[in-house]
Design a protein around this nucleic acid. Structure first.
Ligand SMILES: [Zn+2]
Ligand SMILES: [Zn+2]
Ligand SMILES: [Zn+2]
Ligand SMILES: [Zn+2]
Lengths: 156, 156
DNA sequence: GGACATGACGTTACTTTATAACATCGTGCC
DNA sequence: GGCACGATGTTATAAAGTAACGTCATGTCC
């Protein structure tokens, strides 16, 4: 994700879409869940549950318990509004909730951004490889570590 | 992995290859590291660091500290003898150490086995998707959850 | 052989991540 | 209002991973 973009817009957009999706589904996007979603979206870097917990304490003055955050995250993941990055134990906002997809990520070791992609070739290749072995795919996880374009151009 | 195979052979084979590879590279496969590798290979199910630690205590009578196991695992991963399954916080023996590969896994929710594959289509697709976005791949992670053939045939 | 460097291992304490069990609150429905 | 159900609060605990420092083993140089 370019460092130069209107991230306020990313956040507002994510919240709007979340409200719409939850309304449509009859899922309850409570104040807490909405706030956690907002905090997850505070950047394009995956954010750990305890980091979000700290945000809640410091920015909102509410000393929440870990479970509070984990439960909100669980809801958001179920609704496809947030993805968990397994290799980081962290969470990142979904770029396209509503669309059916499994989540494929390009995680930059430089800036920490996790760019979500949904490349049909990757999905197809996984499906084919699994099918040949008689394996029924339920949930593919693809997390690619490397260096994003801008971090290659501006190394530290 | 079929439940009906000579797993003793898997273990012996893995240990033999490990010794050969380490000798060739001048890496020190010490008694402890060899033992941890053996314990990782105790099945085709990824095994957590603390499970291995328990094995060490119970089977060998040595009350080791977590770091002991983590250090051995770190070595084994570096040497490509073991892979870490990020989505499980667990480790599994590599099916083909020596060969250059990144590790792609079909992880069965039924029996827990993690079958390692190295499907060129998956690797190629990831490379292509990354290249199009100017992303330089360093370490791809592919972990597919689902049901293996035998667990589909014999559901619980 | 002895001094030395290097890497492996031991020990203790601690941090980070995640969940269990149970109580309470809030909202909507009848 | 009374009830049901899901969301949240509270406390305690489990699981996974690391830091700091000391000691021991192995090999090298002289
Ligand atoms: Zn997504
Ligand atoms: Zn970057
Ligand atoms: Zn086997
Ligand atoms: Zn299976």
């Amino acid at each position: 994700m370019s460092a130069l973009h209107d991230h306020t817009h990313c956040i507002a957009d994510a919240l709007t879409r979340a409200e719409a999706l939850c309304a449509e589904r009859g899922a309850r996007l409570t104040a807490l869940r909405r706030r956690v979603l907002e905090l997850v979206w505070s950047s394009h870097r995956p954010r750990g549950a305890y980091a979000i917990l700290e945000d809640l304490s410091q920015q909102d003055g509410k000393a929440a318990a870990p479970l509070t955050v984990y439960r909100a995250l669980e809801f958001l993941v179920e609704q496809g509004l947030v993805h968990r990055i397994e290799s980081l134990n962290a969470y990142v906002g979904c770029a396209d909730p509503g669309a059916v997809h499994s989540g494929q990520f390009l995680v930059c070791e430089g800036c920490g951004d996790a760019a979500e992609i949904d490349d049909p070739r990757v999905g197809t290749a996984i499906d084919a490889a699994a099918a040949e072995r008689g394996f029924r795919v339920q949930r593919p996880t693809v997390e690619v570590r490397g260096l994003c374009k801008s971090c290659q151009e501006n190394p530290r």
